[in-house]
Amino acid sequence: MTTNVRPVLEVRGIRLHETAADRESAVHRCADVLEELGAVHPTYREAMLDREWAMSTYLGEGVAIPHGLDKSRALVRRDSLVVLRFPDGVDWDGHPVTVCVAIAARGDGHVALLAALAQILLDPERARELRETTDAEAIVAMLSQEDL
């Protein structure tokens, strides 16, 4: 793939020192950052909460991927991913989550990044790096890696 994924994931969309009392607060923080970046209409937040309430977005390896619903695509201004790290962990329906990769997508601009995320999570060593690195650039680089 030759898609330039940079604009979908930017260093300013990586937040390493988040705290949240619970899953709902964590989703709110994800929505805050997507809004701050101008990626979504403010009401996208509601769709993210609805989706999370309907079914957990927990993936595994301490990672959740909060996102909206099909009907909320129109509320997305541009395909964007943001990464929020919660060093103290957030209880995600029984799973401890320390990384949220929040998604706002109206097209397929984020697909390559999610493919990279899947590959990272299947490799325990790289999954640990995603959870622990203190370098925001490194997270962008990991997720922007082209499929090998």
């Binding site: 996102h67 619903l69 099909d70 909320s72 997508a105 697909v111 999610l114």
Partner: peptide
């Protein structure tokens, strides 16, 4: 549901 997140991955 959304065809945006988990299924994409």
């Amino acid at each position: 549901d959304a065809g945006m997140g988990s299924s994409v991955m």
